[in-house]
Structure formats: C-alpha cells, structure tokens
Computed example of a mutant assay.
Amino acid sequence: NFYNAPLVFAVLAKKDEAWHRPFDGMVSDQIDASIVTDHMMLEATELGLGSVWICYFNPEIIKNALDIDNGYEVINLLAVGFEDEKSKVVPKKRKELCSLVKQI
C-alpha cells in the first residue's frame, strides 16, 4: 500500500561502500539513507507536495520488483503526491521535551 501516491522513491544503500566507524565497526548506510529520505521529504514539502515515509515493507519483494542487485539494500520507501484534505492527520499531543532529552 503506497497510499495511492503517483510516485514512490526507493532509497537504497550499499553497506560495503558506506562509512565505517573505526572504533566499533558501526556502518552508516542506514543513517545516511535516512538523512537522504528526510531531505527528500523536506523538498517535497517545499514544492507543495505531501509525502509518507514507509518502512513497513518486505525488502526482498521490492528488490525483486525493481531488479535491484549488486549489493544495494532497500532502506526506505518515500511515497510522494498531492495531499488530499481528507488525509490530513490531526497531530497527537506531543511528549514534553524533558521526557525526551536528558541534560548531562
């Protein structure tokens, strides 16, 4: 389900080409792909479009459908299109900042 969007981006990353932190081996592929996805959402908003970040998908199905290989992994999907007034979500009450941030 891509929310009837006319356009869906598949955001990919290649783990063996991503930056590795030398101290513990952490790989930045998913972080980098998520930063790209976030910037794409911001640009869609700037262009007057709506977008939905989708993480609930089976990566193998997407890889097969798009014929993706060579070590690339599907990290995120981003559905983009014109918003429908009926689709506007009423935001939930936000958590207090002090419950999310700890001063050290």
Rank of each mutant, 00 (worst) to 15 (best):
A10M: 06
E17W: 05
V8W: 00
I68E: 02
P59F: 06
L97F: 11
E73H: 08
V89H: 12
E85R: 07
P91R: 09
V36Y: 15
N76M: 03
V74S: 00
M41T: 11
I35G: 03
D67K: 13
E83Y: 08
I104C: 05
A13S: 12
E73P: 00
A33L: 01
S34N: 02
K88E: 12
P6V: 01
C98G: 07
A33C: 01
V52I: 15
M40N: 08
L66M: 13
V74R: 00
I75Y: 00
A5P: 00
G71P: 02
N1W: 07
C55N: 13
F23S: 12
K102S: 09
D67N: 14
K88Y: 12
I35D: 06
L47I: 04
G81T: 07
A44I: 08
Q103G: 00
G48F: 10
F2I: 07
K86I: 04
L66N: 02
G48I: 11
S51T: 07
D24S: 07
T45R: 13
V101K: 01
E73C: 01
L7I: 10
L77F: 03
I31R: 07
W53I: 11
S34F: 00
A13E: 07
V89T: 13
D24I: 05
S28L: 14
E43A: 05
T45V: 15
I62H: 03
Q30Y: 12
I54W: 01
N70M: 01
H39N: 11
I62C: 01
F82S: 13
Y56S: 10
A65N: 14
K102M: 08
V101W: 01
D32I: 08
W19V: 13
I104L: 12
I68N: 02
K86C: 04
T45I: 15
N70E: 05
D67C: 12
K86H: 09
A5C: 04
E96A: 08
I62P: 01
L78T: 02
Y56N: 09
A33T: 04
G71F: 03
D67L: 11
R94Y: 10
L100A: 08
L97H: 07
R94P: 05
P6Q: 04
I61Y: 05
G48M: 05
V52M: 09
V52P: 08
A5Q: 03
N58F: 09
F23V: 06
E83N: 05
Y72A: 08
C98D: 15
M40Q: 05
D67F: 11
V27P: 00
K92F: 13
S99G: 06
F82K: 11
V27R: 09
C98V: 11
V8N: 01
A33Y: 08
D16F: 02
N1L: 11
A10W: 06
D84A: 06
L49K: 14
H39L: 07
Y3A: 14
K95G: 12
